[in-house]
């Protein structure tokens, strides 16, 4: 090895000011995006599994709900009704948590913890990348849906709101998965825990509106916060801008995000 030469900007290196939460999160998020680009195979299931469910569900139920005879479709095909469920499914894989476990097991997480960066940035960095990845996947899925005649009733602005809502949900879901990763430090436990969250996606007005569910399912769907995110997405596709539905959907995401971040920072601060 060659000898170390301390250059003139030694002082600026040693005394460089701290970045702050946003900058640290962006730096770590950039790394996670690069990681995603280098492992495109990990992105494929997040797109193809939801599309598979979309095709199968529409294939099974479209004849029961013809658009001409089904008021809740608001003139669209049954695929338009099913699209939000597929978008939320694609946002609920929580790949960030599995990468985090890998980093914990390999020791890189400790390297990051030993750096003078905001503890919240350690959590937010990967979630920021999760937001971007989900936005890209959701754009492709909606693009495919448009090719098959589905319309976004709220227009381009509504499409952007839809992307924000679905991508923010991906952050929330991945954040809770990261919490489990931090607690368990095990890939198996983290993957297993996703199975606990997964049913929440199906205790929703997935196939028909809430008021047409059986009573027990209606109660379950009403209690389930995911219902309100799904209904907000659905309103943008079928109806237009529905303030009440969007308000509830974004409120669920905001509350869940605040809870997830609070718990995550507590977990990272107490992490031994």
């Amino acid at each position: 090895m060659t000898a170390i030469a301390r250059s003139d900007d030694t002082v600026s290196r040693r005394d460089a000011p701290a970045n702050g939460l946003v900058k640290d999160s962006m730096i770590l998020g950039g790394r996670a995006v690069r990681e995603a680009l280098r492992t495109p195979d990990s992105l494929l299931p997040t797109m193809f599994i939801p599309l598979f469910f979309l095709v199968v569900n529409v294939g099974q139920a479209a004849r029961i709900f013809p658009s001409s005879d089904t008021p809740f479709l608001e003139g669209q095909s049954y695929g338009a009704f099913q699209l939000p469920a597929s978008l939320l499914l694609s946002a609920s894989f929580g790949a960030a948590a599995l990468y985090l476990v890998e980093e914990i097991e390999g020791g890189y997480f400790d390297k990051l913890r030993a750096a003078p960066i905001s503890r919240m940035a350690l959590v937010l960095g990967r979630l920021y990348a999760e937001f971007l990845k989900t936005a890209v996947v959701a754009t492709v899925m909606v693009g495919l849906a448009l090719a098959f005649g589905i319309r976004i009733a709220s227009g381009v602005a509504g499409f952007v709101v839809l992307l924000v809502l679905v991508s923010a949900w991906a952050m929330v879901f991945s954040g809770f998965m990261q919490l489990i990763a931090l607690k368990s430090r095990s890939a198996a436990a983290t993957q297993g825990a996703s199975m606990v969250f997964f049913p929440l996606l199906f205790l929703t007005p997935n196939f028909v509106p809430r008021d047409q569910l059986t009573r027990p399912m209606e109660i379950a769907a009403t209690i389930n916060p995911v219902t309100y995110v799904m209904e907000a997405c659905r309103s943008l596709i079928l109806h237009g801008f529905d303030g009440a539905a969007l308000g509830k959907g974004f409120a669920v995401v905001a509350v869940a995000m605040a809870l997830m971040l609070t718990l995550s920072v507590r977990m990272v601060n107490g992490y031994d």
Partner: peptide
């Protein structure tokens, strides 16, 4: 050796330097 195996050596060092405020 706590390293991110998916990054290059240069990327790891640059990232670490950025996290220290450079």
């Amino acid at each position: 050796a706590g390293l991110d195996l998916r990054q290059t050596g240069r990327e790891i060092l640059t990232l670490q330097a950025r996290l220290f405020g450079m």
